[in-house]
């Protein structure tokens, strides 16, 4: 069972995660009718920028984060922003949003100047996340765990970050045992998605380069 401390921490992170949303005026534009490659590109840029802002708000609420060295806070956010963005997109694409909305979003992504070689791994990842049928608890914990990764570049005090990440991994592991007794590999599968998520840092920087060239 969860200790009281673990229950409180999970509830706190779930609450912060429920506010981790892009403002409606940005999402509304995303769901408007088809637009040109340039408009799609600008919409995705605006969405990515807005995502970073809401990601910072979520991260500030992670217990202990604001006590970290200020430059380490920036290193963690810089190091995880892209991964958190793709994890969040995967959640949205695997959620039960009306199919014509997800088709519109998918169409917008496919027609925004992103090279096909980056579209394929992106939608493969969304599908592999979708297959896990993750709950809100799993998404919120996995997002927090991704942000609080001690091995990000430019981080000075790795132990302080590890002390914040460790309890979250324990809660997630216990949560998986409690909620997936029939699937002892579920926790390992979730961590496996984090590894897949890391590949998007590389994809994303190449995507930006190809965008600039186009």
């Amino acid at each position: 069972e969860f200790t009281q401390k673990q229950q409180d921490l999970l509830r706190h992170i779930l609450d912060a995660f429920s506010k981790y949303r892009i403002p409606q005026e940005v999402t509304k534009k995303l769901l408007q009718q088809r637009s040109s490659v340039e408009e799609n590109f600008l919409l995705l840029t605006e969405t990515a920028t807005s995502h970073v802002q809401v990601l910072v708000e979520f991260t500030k609420k992670l217990p202990g984060f604001q006590m970290l060295d200020h430059e380490d806070q920036i290193a963690l956010l810089k190091g995880s922003a892209v991964e958190a963005m793709f994890l969040r997109s995967a959640q949205i694409f695997s959620r039960k949003i009306p199919s014509q909305q997800s088709e519109l979003l998918e169409d917008r992504i496919r027609h925004s100047g992103i090279a096909e070689e980056y579209i394929v791994p992106m939608f493969n990842f969304y599908r592999s996340i979708g297959e896990l049928k993750m709950t809100q608890e799993e998404y919120s914990l996995l997002t927090a765990i991704t942000i609080l990764s001690p091995d990000r570049s430019f981080v000075k005090n790795r132990e302080a970050i590890d002390r914040l990440q460790e309890p979250l991994l324990e809660i997630l592991q216990k949560y998986c045992k409690l909620n997936h007794p029939d699937d002892p590999q579920h926790f390992a599968r979730l961590l496996g998605r984090l590894t897949e998520l890391r590949t998007f840092n590389h994809h994303h920087s190449n995507m930006l380069t190809s965008w600039r060239i186009n």
């Binding site: 920028t49 970073v52 910072v56 708000e57 806070q73 920036i74 922003a81």
Partner: peptide, 21 residues
């Protein structure tokens, strides 16, 4: 607007709670 800023600038501003788009 924020979208012209680099990632680090957006993060620094957001950490300080400033969102002057």
């Amino acid at each position: 607007p924020a979208s012209n800023l680099g990632l680090e600038d957006i993060i620094r501003k957001a950490l300080m709670g400033k969102y002057d788009d």
